[in-house]
Write a protein that binds this DNA or RNA. Structure first.
Length: 586
RNA sequence: UGGGGUGUCGCCAAGUGGUAAGGCACAAGGUUUUGAUCCUUGCAUGCGUUGGUUCGAAUCCAGCCACCCCAGCCA
């Protein structure tokens, strides 16, 4: 997790060129045609630093950065850090790194809502001065009562009729730290009878005597999301403020706040010339949901805190940090985000689509190698004990430009236990007693003898190689099976981690599930020691993604392992990103 | 039962009044020294539903049904 350039697949590789129409692209085309924003397109990705980014965020990141790039515009990274209680610098750092890893660069410096706190304070004075906001003495509990319900309108706060002067004094006293948390709040003066509950005098500022990760102890009052987000967008000269559907009800408030402020003062903060300045507009799209996946930040944090997983970067997590350690590439994620599309309908994407994108990219770019997960010794009887040839094999079967590697073949090799059967099922294409199979990239061998231990377990196979089959088909017969193998004496011992989905139900966050712990997949992680990998994988530096032929895609993990460039590594870990597609059901 | 949304193939998703794109999944063939990849073919007389307007409707109108979001001083 230290070097973002260390991944074997280029993070800057452009996404697929198949640009699909969607309602946001159409909206922007219309805005450009009408010159609503003078042709400017300026978006932003506004995470709250209260957790790690997950694949749902990736959709938003790709959308915001791509839509800006397509239109020669810009995209800002802005931390929406108005709630210091839940936020931390650790999350800020991780988020920045994840976005770079995904392959995007934000415009200018990283922004923070907290760096607008002075401006936000000046604007609240302006709003109070226009009798559009007031200081409310209701406690949070009372405020809830006064707000009414979904079907009943609310009642006015007793503080609603205070004079502007009184409000201004109370505001200053709030800021000075004279009151306890919750004693007062600043509220917009809109309409307590509005059918939209967000418009029933929403809270704009609250008292929180707590240190902030960016502004330390400068403030004890903090602006709320609704008040901060629209103004931050306006200050940054954002044109298209994209967010998810649950904020649709907030759009009237977003607009109300900006429209009740002097546009000239907003413009002044933006630094944009008058001719280019237009208020931003919010547009909502459906968030990404994936089946068999839990996306709620609160739940993900709980899994980390309770050690249900090893951390935010556990390879089973849907976090960007986790998927990275799993071996998922940035290009695969970007292609996935593009291929799921953008719409306003609630949708749950099938995990299979993500898996397809991962395989698609890895098949094209991952170097091939052989690794035997469950070794079974094969003695090739017509090779001498000191037999050694170095076979040259392609790093990629369909792309010679990716080069070749040396694979040593010796008297004894390992194949996978699953590739030999004494009693083969119908259709079995692997090795049987008396049968033949091709050692991938090497000779065809025939099994002559099965050696068992006292328990009757197969411990060794004695085989004969057909010396006339190197690089050519055997004479007069067909050998269908191909099996991967590794030299017994020259192979390297490694540990492999196999991952499966974390949950065994499609929707672990559905109302039918009382506790996600009840639906955890107990077999989501399988660790296999003493796997044997061909030596070349340890010498090909900078490459971390491999396809172990016939097994799947694996990622050399830097965690819990020695430096991969160590000339004599002893503890090597390969995480299985994903298996190969398997159309042979057994 | 207030307000705001959404309903097009098992899953995403184009379509914006002229007669249902594409991808995933699935199925059947072909190639193959990875049971992978790749290639070929198939896969909605139908667009939540019922009516209406129209020469013509997934697209326009009306009603109905289903599902999602909102009563944090969270975002």
């Amino acid at each position: 997790m230290t070097n973002s350039n260390n991944d074997s697949v280029d993070a800057k590789q452009p996404p697929k060129k198949t640009v699909v129409s969607n309602f946001i692209r159409q909206l922007i085309s219309r805005d450009n045609a009408s010159a609503k924003y003078g042709g400017r397109v300026h978006t932003r990705f506004p995470p709250e630093p209260n957790g790690y980014l997950h694949i749902g965020h990736a959709k938003s990141i790709c959308l915001n950065f791509s839509i800006a790039a397509e239109n020669n515009g810009f995209c800002n990274l802005r931390f929406d850090d108005t709630n210091p209680e839940k936020e931390s610098q650790e999350y800020v750092d991780a988020i920045k790194e994840n976005i770079n890893w995904l392959g995007f660069s934000w415009q200018g410096d990283v922004r923070y809502s907290s760096s607008y706190f002075d401006a936000l304070y000046a604007f609240i004075i302006q709003l109070i001065g226009k009798d559009k906001a007031y200081v409310c003495s209701l406690s949070p509990e009372q405020a809830r009562e006064y707000r009414g319900s979904l079907t009943d309108s609310g009642r006015n706060s007793p503080s609603r009729d205070a004079t502007i002067a009184e409000n201004l004094i109370l505001l200053e006293r709030m800021r000075a730290g004279e009151f306890e948390n919750g004693a007062y709040s600043v509220r917009a003066k809109i309409d307590m009878a509005s059918p939209n509950i967000n418009m029933r005098d929403p809270v704009l500022y609250r008292i929180r005597h707590i240190e902030h990760h960016q502004t330390a102890n400068k403030w004890c009052i903090y602006p709320t999301y609704d008040y901060t987000h629209c103004i931050s967008d306006a200050i940054e000269g954002i044109t298209h403020s994209l967010c998810t559907m649950e904020f649709e009800d907030h759009r009237p408030l977003y607009n109300w706040i900006l429209e009740n402020l002097e546009i000239s003062s907003l413009r002044a903060e933006s630094g944009l010339p008058d001719s280019e300045y237009v208020l931003p507009g919010q547009t909502e799209f459906a968030k990404l949901k994936l089946n068999y996946t839990m996306m709620g930040k609160r739940n993900l944090k709980n899994m980390v805190d309770t050690h249900a997983v090893s951390g935010w970067d556990d390879p089973r997590m849907p976090t960007l940090a986790g998927m990275r350690r799993r071996g998922v590439t940035p290009a695969a994620l970007r292609n996935f985000c593009e291929s799921v599309g953008v719409s306003r309908s609630e949708s749950v994407v099938d995990l299979g689509m993500l898996e397809y994108c991962i395989r698609e990219d890895l098949d094209k770019n991952a170097w091939r190698a052989m690794c035997v997960l469950r070794p079974l010794k094969v003695v090739i009887s017509n090779f001498s004990a000191d037999y050694l040839i170095k076979l040259l094999m392609s790093n990629h079967p369909k792309d010679e430009s990716q080069g070749k590697r040396e694979v040593p073949l010796t008297h004894e090799v390992y194949i996978d236990r699953a590739d030999f059967e004494e009693m083969p099922p119908p259709g079995f294409k692997r090795l049987t007693l008396g049968g033949e199979v091709r050692l991938r990239g090497a000779y065809v061998i025939r099994c002559d003898e099965v050696i068992k231990n006292d328990q009757g377990e197969i411990i060794e196979l004695v085989c004969t190689a057909d010396l006339d089959t190197l690089g050519k088909k055997p004479e007069g017969r067909k050998v269908k099976g191909v099996v991967h193998w590794v030299s017994a004496s020259l192979g390297k011992s490694v540990t492999v981690r196999l991952y499966d989905r974390l949950f065994n139900v499609e929707n672990p966050e559905s109302k039918d599930v009382e506790d996600y712990r009840d639906v955890l997949n107990p077999n989501s992680l399988e660790i296999i020691d003493n796997c044997v990998v061909e030596p070349s994988v340890l010498t090909r530096d900078a490459k971390l993604n491999f396809q172990f032929e016939r097994e799947g895609y694996f990622y050399l993990d830097s965690k819990d392992s020695k430096d991969p460039k160590d000339p004599a590594p002893t503890d090597l870990y390969f995480n299985r990103t994903i298996s190969l597609r398997d159309s042979w059901s057994s």
